[in-house]
């Protein structure tokens, strides 16, 4: 056991680094056009060059595109999609999970069977099949992932709601005649926030991995768009000529997902402490 002060000083270091990295990714995602205006400029005459050649700090890919600029521009699809998937699936999870957990009945049964069905196949594999066969662009893929991610969120929220619903403060509200909608969304939802937030961040990281897996296989993002998964797929053939074409986006995916996960762990720890202090 370390002294509390020592722990306090150490904990924020990883969190601070994570926040810093995510802030940088967010800036690139929002202002990518300004930071990396030449991300998509092709130069087929140069082709692939290594790091430092012709002013390309990290070299180019086989279309002659600058790896640095391409990677900066790729931040957008690395952040927007995962955030949407996580938020969308958690929204479904909170709505359906709260109602299913508190009211039970037919809806609970239906939601439960749906979850059984979707969870019988790994999400990434299902996403490959559905997105691949149905086609459609990035946003359709995001929607498919929301559908595939939501059952586990519904289950999680449902379990947390059932755990809370037997507590005296909820039962008192029932006896007082407080309307069910109010009990669910004024009493239950705020008290499962720790679970929701921790899982939301976990889902962002997981969605980033899933979306970049899909684009690595050529699904989701249109060909030629800046995307880390795509870059990796293209860079696979360039390991000899310019390994950075694959290594840089690979490290970016790992670092971003790690930062989100660390942040999630930190947030849930902090919220747990807050709950314990009640």
């Amino acid at each position: 056991m370390t002294r509390p002060s020592a722990r306090l000083r150490r904990l924020p270091a990883t969190i601070a680094l994570s926040v810093l990295l995510l802030a940088a990714v967010a800036v690139c995602a929002v202002a990518g056009g300004l930071i990396a205006p030449h991300a998509l400029d092709q130069d087929i005459y140069t082709g692939t060059v290594g790091a430092g050649v012709d002013g390309h700090l990290l070299g180019t890919d086989k279309l002659g595109r600058d790896i640095l600029q391409l990677s900066l521009a790729g931040a957008r699809s690395a952040l927007a999609g995962p955030l949407l998937v996580a938020a969308g699936s958690m929204l479904v999870g909170v709505l359906l999970g709260t109602v299913a957990g508190y009211r039970g009945g037919l809806l609970d049964q239906l939601v439960g069977r749906y979850a059984d069905l979707v969870l019988a196949l790994p999400a990434v594999l299902l996403a490959i099949v559905v997105a691949g066969l149905l086609g459609g662009g990035y946003w359709i893929t995001v929607a498919v992932l929301v559908v595939l991610f939501s059952p586990s969120d519904v289950r999680l929220v449902r379990a947390a709601v059932i755990e809370q619903a037997s507590r005296p403060y909820i039962e008192s509200a029932r006896v007082l005649g407080v309307r069910p909608a109010r009990i669910m969304f004024r009493h239950l939802t705020p008290n499962i926030v720790p679970v929701v937030v921790a899982n939301l961040l976990l889902n962002v990281a997981f969605a980033l991995v899933a979306l970049s897996s899909l684009s690595y296989l050529g699904l989701g993002v249109p060909p030629g768009a800046p995307d880390w998964g795509r870059q990796l797929a293209d860079g696979r053939e360039l390991l000899g000529d310019n390994p950075l074409a694959a290594i840089v986006p690979g490290l970016l995916i790992i670092a971003t997902a790690t930062a989100v996960n660390l942040l999630g762990d930190g947030v849930s720890e902090a919220l747990d402490r807050k709950v314990a202090a009640r």
Binding site: A205, G235, I254, T258, N261
Partner: peptide, 13 residues
């Protein structure tokens, strides 16, 4: 945490 966050294909490369 790093391991959980790293997609298999990125690690492969």
């Amino acid at each position: 945490v790093v391991g959980v966050s790293a997609p298999g294909f990125a690690v492969s490369l």
